[in-house]
């Protein structure tokens, strides 16, 4: 817990029970129609003030995955914070989702852009889930590939947009996944940081000149977040403002005697209390 407190997060949020949230799949249905359908079954949905496709589920009468609407692909269960990276990406042109499984963000990209998406992951079991989710959600503008993300830049394709929602220690999800606290150690974060750096570098090098990379994680450690962005800056990346009106904290520029590039303050740290959702880190960078 010490490492969480050091970052100014407090620890009360860990024991908080959060509301579920869903994203309406506008490929198949409009938000108002879905809201009316679910509310006629006794659900209570509250639309997010900053995203018309996102709803907090204040009350439901059955499991999220146990409705005809879910069966038909009308919505996707997704945490509020995890809806932000795609909005920060402003998807258009040729898009790479480098670590795409289970497909929540890929399908969200498809809602916002009809352009071609390459959805990549590395593990067969995860690819299965990705393919099943994209099928249920009716996403057609996608090619699913299997390749270690850190090698993706070796392909000849350059992208207008790349999303890297990196594998991470997931500490921001501790409120519904307490085992992440037990498995965490500085060594664990350091190991992940090495992988994240390699993936982020490959993601950056996969961009066309002027292209946009959004790097995100659902963890709070500096090693897995600001440290990665600092590395990308050393490769020539420029951190950009995220022009969204959503409560957040700034990225950390001084930590344990180390100073990071000042532009890292433009990155977003979503504290669990900011949105009553998971902790998240989001950075938008231009090549």
């Amino acid at each position: 817990m010490k490492h969480i407190e050091e970052l100014g997060y407090g620890t009360d949020w860990i024991n908080k029970r959060l509301y579920d949230s869903i994203r309406v799949n506008t490929i198949k249905i409009d938000p108002l129609t879905l809201k009316q359908r679910l509310e006629s079954q006794g659900w209570i949905l509250e639309q997010l003030p900053w995203y018309s496709y996102g709803f907090i589920v204040k009350n439901r009468t059955t499991e999220l995955g146990n409705t005809l609407e879910h069966f038909l692909g009308y919505y996707y269960s997704q945490s509020v914070s995890s809806m932000i990276p795609v909005l920060a990406l402003e998807p258009k042109g040729l898009i790479l989702d480098m670590a795409a499984a289970p497909g929540g963000k890929t399908s969200q990209i498809a809602q916002h852009s009809g352009d071609l998406i390459i959805a990549n992951d590395v593990n067969n079991a995860r690819l299965n889930i990705l393919a099943a989710n994209l099928q249920r959600l009716g996403v057609s503008n996608v090619i699913i590939t299997r390749k270690p993300g850190q090698n993706f830049h070796k392909t000849s394709i350059k992208f207008d947009r790349v999303l890297l929602d990196a594998p991470c220690s997931s500490l921001g999800t501790a409120m519904h996944n307490p085992r992440v606290l037990k498995q965490w150690s500085p060594k664990f974060s350091a190991k992940l940081s090495k992988l994240q750096k390699a993936m982020a570098e490959s993601a950056f090098l996969s961009l066309k000149k002027g292209g946009i990379l959004v790097y995100s994680t659902c963890t709070i450690t500096v090693e897995e977040n600001e440290e990665i962005i600092n590395h990308l800056i050393s490769l020539g990346a420029k951190v950009e403002d995220i022009n969204l009106d959503i409560p957040h904290h700034e990225g950390i520029t001084d930590y344990k005697g180390k100073h990071y590039d000042n532009s890292i303050s433009k990155c977003w740290r979503i504290h669990p209390d900011d949105l009553e959702s998971e902790g998240f880190f989001i950075a938008r960078l231009r090549r």
């Binding site: 996403v139 996608v142 699913i144 299997r146 390749k147 392909t155």
Partner: peptide
């Protein structure tokens, strides 16, 4: 499978478009 547009991707293709 149906896809609105297609490019050759030099990576192992797991699936494409919508069944």
């Amino acid at each position: 499978f149906m896809i609105p547009k297609y490019i050759d991707v030099p990576a192992k293709i797991y699936s494409l478009g919508l069944c």
